Computed example of a mutant assay.
Amino acid sequence: MDRAQLGEALRELRKASGKEAKAVARGALMSASKLSRIENARLMAGAGDVERILTAIGVSDEVKAEYAEAAREAATEATAWRLLKRAGVHKGQQAAKALEAQMSVLRLFQPALVPGLLQTPEYIRAVLRRHDLTETSLERTIAGRLERQAVLYESSKELRFVITEPVLRWRIVPPAMLAAQLDRIVSMSRLTNVHVSVVPLLAEQRDIANHAFVIRDDRMVTVETVHAEMVVTDPRDVALYSDKFRRFEHTALAGDEMRCFLEGIRDEFLREQDSRWIPPSIG
């Protein structure tokens, strides 16, 4: 049951009870305008909201439990990676592209990998190979991710990335490719609508870098776990992720300081690559 279906069901239950919206809202300890937004699917009702509304309506405990569970499921939807793979991983890129076309502001926190929108083709290939895709599916997915990167050049959109220092050093490609990947991040950070921040390991932290997440327009959060992709829409939960993003962004390096930091790590990789070069023998 999605937000629209839940709101419609609550409205029909209220009407069937014969109670006015104002009376139900008062009994549910919320404003009439909030009840209206929930019923018309303009606001996602939390499980607590649903329970209070149904208590005010006067339904049975069984009905309350059923709809409260529906509210929890609607607020957080999870799709297992195995199901996405079965449907075609490249279709996930198409879905992400559609979401990015509709949004105005994207905020992405990444403690494990370079964000997909900033990845080089070589880095993308290395990331996707862990999914055991067919060569055709791999190529289509790489192409789809590269197409998505066009959003970086849309000046009407604001894109904010916060990544942690280990992301820059994670060796999923050879040193020379990592150096090129860091150059790519530096280059993209110079776009006026793209903001890249890096949390250095030496920065004092009061938060935990649990996992990656993407916030779109303060409406939706996408969370990637080991087994599934989760979509969070409950405003209270979205706010938790927004606060977490702000805390990490506050401790991160940005602008020229960030670029200098990345260039220092890039130079480390280039020196390492050069040290492996063996000159040809003479004579």
Results as ranks from 00 to 15, higher is better:
residue 1 M to L: 09
residue 13 L to C: 00
residue 14 R to M: 03
residue 14 R to A: 02
residue 15 K to L: 13
residue 20 E to W: 06
residue 23 A to S: 08
residue 27 G to D: 04
residue 37 R to D: 08
residue 37 R to P: 06
residue 41 A to N: 10
residue 42 R to I: 08
residue 46 G to N: 02
residue 50 V to T: 13
residue 51 E to G: 01
residue 52 R to L: 12
residue 61 D to T: 04
residue 62 E to S: 13
residue 62 E to C: 01
residue 63 V to K: 10
residue 64 K to V: 15
residue 68 A to W: 03
residue 71 A to D: 00
residue 75 A to V: 04
residue 78 A to H: 10
residue 78 A to K: 14
residue 78 A to V: 12
residue 85 K to I: 03
residue 90 H to E: 15
residue 97 K to R: 10
residue 106 L to W: 07
residue 109 F to N: 01
residue 111 P to T: 03
residue 112 A to F: 13
residue 113 L to S: 06
residue 113 L to N: 10
residue 126 A to C: 08
residue 128 L to P: 06
residue 129 R to W: 09
residue 139 E to L: 05
residue 141 T to I: 11
residue 141 T to M: 03
residue 161 F to K: 00
residue 164 T to L: 10
residue 174 P to K: 09
residue 177 M to C: 12
residue 178 L to S: 04
residue 180 A to L: 11
residue 181 Q to C: 01
residue 184 R to V: 02
residue 191 L to R: 14
residue 191 L to S: 13
residue 193 N to T: 07
residue 194 V to T: 02
residue 200 P to L: 11
residue 201 L to N: 12
residue 212 A to M: 15
residue 215 I to K: 03
residue 217 D to A: 06
residue 218 D to F: 11
residue 218 D to L: 06
residue 219 R to S: 06
residue 222 T to E: 11
residue 223 V to F: 13
residue 226 V to M: 12
residue 242 S to F: 07
residue 245 F to V: 05
residue 248 F to H: 05
residue 249 E to H: 14
residue 250 H to S: 09
residue 254 A to T: 06
residue 257 E to M: 07
residue 260 C to E: 00
residue 261 F to C: 02
residue 264 G to E: 11
residue 265 I to G: 03
residue 266 R to M: 01
residue 275 S to M: 07
residue 275 S to H: 14
residue 279 P to I: 00
residue 281 S to H: 11
